[in-house]
């Protein structure tokens, strides 16, 4: 059941999302996105450029975090805008646990044309990894 524009208010919190990214997820995303930058799979290259370890593609983090909005709205075609700043890398260790990402979101503005602005917060290891993350979504009446 999709949320309706008339029923939601500013401040409404969307259901939170906890995700886990492992090295296998990074490899899969590299293949699907054709972004084969070795800092996303090679410890050696990541460390050579000063990173603590392999990091997730920013676009993988952004893509996963967007689910907090599309899971809630149901129809992903309702997303009019989506934007983020990549403020901190998500370091993904070479183990079975990988890296956790906790994503929360809330409505910050009700706009014309049944659109709402949603602010998204993505936290990894106690720190936010996306800045000014927000989406503009058009809801059913």
């Amino acid at each position: 059941m999709s949320p309706s524009y008339d029923a939601v208010e500013t401040g409404h919190e969307l259901p939170a999302l906890t995700l886990r990214l492992t090295r296998a997820d990074l490899i899969r995303y590299a293949g699907a996105s054709l972004d084969f930058n070795p800092i996303h799979y090679s410890d050696r290259v990541a460390r050579a450029v000063g990173l603590p370890d392999v990091i997730a593609h920013g676009m993988l983090t952004m893509g996963c975090a967007g689910r907090v909005v599309t899971d809630w709205v149901g129809d992903p075609g309702a997303v009019r805008e989506y934007g983020v700043r990549f403020t901190r890398p998500v370091v993904v260790p070479d183990d079975d646990d990988g890296a956790d990402l906790h994503v929360t979101a809330k409505i910050t503005e009700k706009l014309d044309d049944r659109c709402v602005r949603i602010a998204i917060t993505a936290v990894h290891g106690g720190a936010t990894v996306l800045g000014r993350a927000s989406a503009l979504v058009r809801l059913p009446a």
């Binding site: 995700l19 997820d25 899969r28 995303y29 293949g31 699907a32 996105s33 676009m59 993988l60 952004m62 893509g63 996963c64 967007g66 689910r67 599309t70 899971d71 149901g74 129809d75 992903p76 075609g77 997303v79 989506y82 989406a135």
Partner: peptide, 29 residues
């Protein structure tokens, strides 16, 4: 699948068409 998203609009033609789209919806990113 690579972004871990099982939304039917990305996977199931009938579900995408039920939402009014001619085919599967591409995720926003």
């Amino acid at each position: 699948t690579a972004i871990g998203d099982a939304n039917p609009a990305y996977h199931d033609l009938a579900a995408a068409r039920a939402l009014g789209y001619p085919s599967l919806v591409a995720p926003p990113t």
